[in-house]
Design a protein around this nucleic acid. Structure first.
Length: 283
DNA sequence: ATTAATGTTCAGAA
DNA sequence: TTTCTGAACATTAA
């Protein structure tokens, strides 16, 4: 579930605690749970990181990037259920990796907890970090998506716009949850082929994307029913209370109050929508 | 007790 | 070339 707002929240929680600190040790598979995918290998990762200093922690799409002294990067991909926490992980069962820091402070370890274990951790050599990702929906300077980039991105695919929004090579940061929310705010039918959207709709998409994601960051992301997602201190997000459509099938639309939220399936994933707000005639 | 579904990504097939 | 399918894994609901 961690999408841009959740990953951004993790980074904001971790950065002030971890930046400037030296890695004392890295420990894998606490409580002997299964190892997650580590590239090139846990051994290499550990040997390289121990003794290095964390220069900065930042977000790239849905990934957490640690810049370490010497120029290498540690890239953590939470995928479905991965979390980076400084304390109180949801359970002791799925602690996959632990980073210990030198010196003494309020928090001396950073954990990678992952219930499903689909997350990945990659150590990249200096200079190897290049984004196979599209531009950021929210990002610094040139990395941030412009309306022109949106027009370009939509124009080159015939796939449904919902599917294109989730394609990280087109735009980095949007996943299944926020795609539904964004399209509802933009008043766009999720099934519309991306290349059939007019300029006005694309502009609305651009505005809606930034608006939804910014608000979700302010609310520290969405913690769904299973309670999996938490911030760095293991507290729940609040944005789920403001969901317009996601997981609200059958409930009245909060905006138009005309009808109920509908669930459809696109690319094997649930999409939630309001047929009135999004101009859809369902047969 | 099986089976399907769940937030993501990617390799390999169509 | 672009788009689609299934697999990686753990847990819950049906």
């Amino acid at each position: 579930m961690p999408e841009l707002p959740e990953v951004e929240t993790m980074v904001r929680g971790i950065r002030p605690v971890v930046s400037g600190r030296t890695i004392r040790d890295v420990v894998a598979c606490l409580n002997s749970c299964k190892p997650i995918s580590i590239t090139p290998s846990f051994r290499v990762l550990r040997d390289h990181l121990v003794g290095k200093k964390v220069i900065d922690v930042r977000r790239l799409g849905k990934r957490i990037v640690f810049d370490v002294s010497g120029g290498a990067n540690l890239v953590v991909e939470p995928r479905m259920t991965g979390l980076m926490v400084l304390a109180n992980p949801p359970s002791t069962q799925h602690l996959r990796l632990r980073f210990d820091f030198r010196g003494r402070a309020e928090f001396d370890s950073l954990w990678f907890w992952d219930r499903r274990g689909l997350g990945t951790v990659t150590l990249l050599a200096p200079g190897d970090i290049k984004t196979r990702f599209g531009p950021e929906v929210l990002g610094v300077d040139a990395l941030e998506m412009t309306v022109e980039a949106w027009i370009d991105c939509c124009g080159k695919s015939r796939r449904e716009i919902k599917v294109v929004l989730m394609d990280q090579k087109m735009v980095a940061g949007i996943g299944n949850l926020y795609a539904s929310e964004i399209l509802h705010l933009a008043g766009i039918n999720p099934m519309t082929p991306a290349n059939e959207l007019d300029r006005k709709s694309i502009r609305q998409l651009s505005v809606a994307s930034q608006s939804i994601l910014r608000t979700a960051i302010e609310d520290e992301g969405s913690t769904l029913g299973d309670g999996t997602y938490r911030n760095a201190l293991s507290q729940s997000g609040k944005y789920q209370n403001r969901h317009r459509v996601y997981m609200r099938e059958g409930q009245p639309c909060r905006i138009c109050r005309n009808g109920k939220i509908t669930r459809i399936v696109q690319a094997q994933r649930s999409t939630f929508l309001c047929q009135y707000c999004q101009g859809i005639s369902l047969k």
